[in-house]
């Protein structure tokens, strides 16, 4: 028996209210080449990351729901940060073991490396995992003020 009987509200709320049926129309015409703007409300949370830089530290947020803290390997080499996770979710949630009516989540292993835009003190970095978000906070390496030098511009003659 299908408990989610009738249908599912598949269309994004805002878009559906503004232009009813427009998304289905575009998909029927363009298929996989549907304009990206129509997908903006559809979240595809892979390792989506957010980078914030302030005066003291760099904060990186990775949205990785369904993992465990011990699944993550975080490495910092110079200004390069690598985040790696491997989990057994793929095996646990395989279609063979479960009778899915539909499956959209993709809890999978990933590896991502990023060049940070500022110099950081990698040895003092801290990482935490809460509510499906991996947060890495890295203090910035203080740069000594370079000596200011004024260069006079002489006339060409």
């Amino acid at each position: 028996m299908n408990l989610l009987a009738k249908r599912e509200n598949e269309l994004p709320v805002e878009l559906e209210h503004t232009f009813p049926g427009v998304e289905e129309f575009f998909r029927s015409v363009f298929g996989p080449f549907t304009p990206e703007v129509l997908h903006r409300q559809h979240s595809t949370w892979g390792p989506v990351h957010d980078l914030r830089v302030d005066e003291k530290e760099v904060t990186l947020l990775f949205a990785c729901p369904g993992h465990k803290a011990e699944d993550f390997d975080v490495e910092i080499t110079g200004n390069l940060i690598s985040v790696k996770t491997c989990c057994d979710c793929e095996k646990d949630h395989s279609a063979e073991k479960h009778s899915y009516m539909f499956k959209e989540r993709s809890c999978m292993s990933f590896e991502e490396s990023l060049h940070l835009p500022v110099k950081v003190a990698g040895a003092d970095a801290k990482a935490s995992y809460e509510n499906g978000v991996l947060k890495v906070v890295i203090p910035r390496k203080l740069e000594k003020n370079a000596a200011r030098r004024t260069i006079k511009v002489s006339c060409g003659k």
Partner: peptide, 12 residues
């Protein structure tokens, strides 16, 4: 910013 969360629906 409103997002539609991905979902798995399992019949048990």
């Amino acid at each position: 910013v409103t997002l539609r969360p991905p979902a798995d629906v399992e019949d048990t």
